[in-house]
C-alpha cells in the first residue's frame, strides 16, 4: 500500500516538474582557454538547482551564460544552445539580451549595491529601466519587493540612506530585492553567501526556500551543506564538465560517478 502511494507521488512529481531552461551542448571559452565542455542540463520550474564543484570548475561561467553575461568579457566565446521556455536565448531573432536579462535576474558573490544610491533607489533602479512609474506606485512596489526579500522590517526607517550603509547580509538581500524588482522568472545566484556570516547565510537560505514558489532558482555554491539544504536538484561540475546531475538527495547519498562521490565525501579538492 505504502509503496503504491509513493509511486503515485513520484508520478505526480514528474507531471508537475516542467523544464524552464534547457541547455544543450553548451561550451564556453576565455580567449583560447576552454572553460565549459558540452554541458547538457534541464533546469526545472519552481525548483532550486544547485551547481557545486571545486573552484575553477566553470560553475560561475555556466550560470553567467544563462543571462549572457559571459559574452561581455573581452575574448569570451560561447557555442551551443540555451532554451528559455523553448526559445533559444542566443537566437537574435527571438530574444534580445535586454529582455533576456529582465526575465533572468542575477545576484553576485559580493554584495553590489550601487554605492551612490539610497536603499530605495537601489530597488527602484531596475524598475525605472522598464518604464516610468508614478511615485506612489513606485513606493508601493518597492515596499512589496523589500517585504518579499525579507528586508522591509530592517530598512523601512532608513530607506533613504545609502545602500552601502547596510551590513553585508542586508546588502546581499538588497541585491536580491533589486533583482526581484524587475519581475524575473529565473534567478541566478552566484555564491551569494560566500562573503557572509552564518546568520546572514541562514536568512538568505530561508529566503531562497520562500522564493522558489514563484521563481526558478539556480544557485552556485562551493558549500555542499548549503546545496543539500536548499536545492531540489544538484549538478556537480569538474574542470568545465558536468559530471553528474540528479535529485539532490541522490547526489549526496548515492552518487553514480566516482568523482562525485570523492567530492561530496570530502576526499577531493
Amino acid at each position: 500500500m505504502d509503496r503504491v502511494i509513493e509511486k503515485v507521488k513520484k508520478e505526480e512529481k514528474m507531471v508537475i516538474e516542467r523544464s524552464k531552461m534547457s541547455v544543450e551542448n553548451l561550451s564556453a571559452w576565455f580567449g583560447d582557454k576552454q572553460a565549459l565542455f558540452n554541458i547538457n542540463i534541464e533546469l526545472f520550474e519552481n525548483k532550486v538547482t544547485a551547481i557545486i564543484g571545486p573552484s575553477g570548475c566553470g560553475k560561475s561561467t555556466f550560470i553567467r551564460n544563462l543571462n549572457r553575461l559571459h559574452e561581455t568579457i573581452s575574448g569570451a566565446k560561447v557555442s551551443g544552445k540555451v532554451y528559455l521556455d523553448g526559445r533559444d536565448i542566443f537566437d537574435h531573432n527571438c530574444c534580445d539580451v535586454v529582455t533576456l536579462r529582465r526575465r533572468v535576474g542575477m545576484v553576485f558573490q559580493k554584495p553590489t549595491p550601487f554605492p551612490t544610491m539610497t536603499i530605495y533607489e537601489n530597488v527602484a533602479a531596475g524598475i525605472k529601466l522598464y518604464g516610468k512609474k508614478p511615485k506612489g506606485k513606485l513606493d508601493q512596489i518597492v515596499e512589496q519587493i523589500l517585504k518579499q526579500a525579507a528586508l522591509w522590517d530592517e530598512v523601512k526607517d532608513v530607506l533613504y540612506k545609502p545602500g552601502p550603509s547596510l551590513s553585508g547580509g542586508q546588502q546581499q538581500r538588497l541585491c536580491i530585492a533589486r533583482a526581484l524588482a524587475i519581475e524575473p522568472e529565473v534567478i541566478l545566484l552566484d555564491e551569494p553567501c560566500s562573503a557572509l556570516d552564518p546568520i546572514s547565510t541562514a536568512k538568505i537560505e530561508e529566503l531562497i526556500h520562500k522564493l522558489k514558489q514563484n521563481y526558478t532558482i539556480i544557485i552556485v555554491t562551493h558549500n555542499m551543506q548549503q546545496a543539500a539544504r536548499v536545492a531540489d536538484y544538484t549538478a556537480f561540475f569538474l574542470l568545465g564538465e558536468m559530471i553528474e546531475f540528479e535529485v539532490t538527495s541522490k547526489i549526496f547519498t548515492a552518487p553514480q560517478d566516482k568523482r562525485t562521490e570523492d567530492y561530496v565525501t570530502g576526499r577531493f579538492g
Partner: peptide, 19 residues
C-alpha cells in the same frame, strides 16, 4: 561587479554607465 549588476538588470551600455 557594479557594471555586471547593472547589466544583469538588463541595462544597456548607456544605462550601465549611468547607473
Amino acid at each position: 561587479n557594479l557594471r555586471e549588476s547593472a547589466l544583469a538588470l538588463g541595462a544597456t551600455k548607456w544605462e550601465t554607465f549611468k547607473l
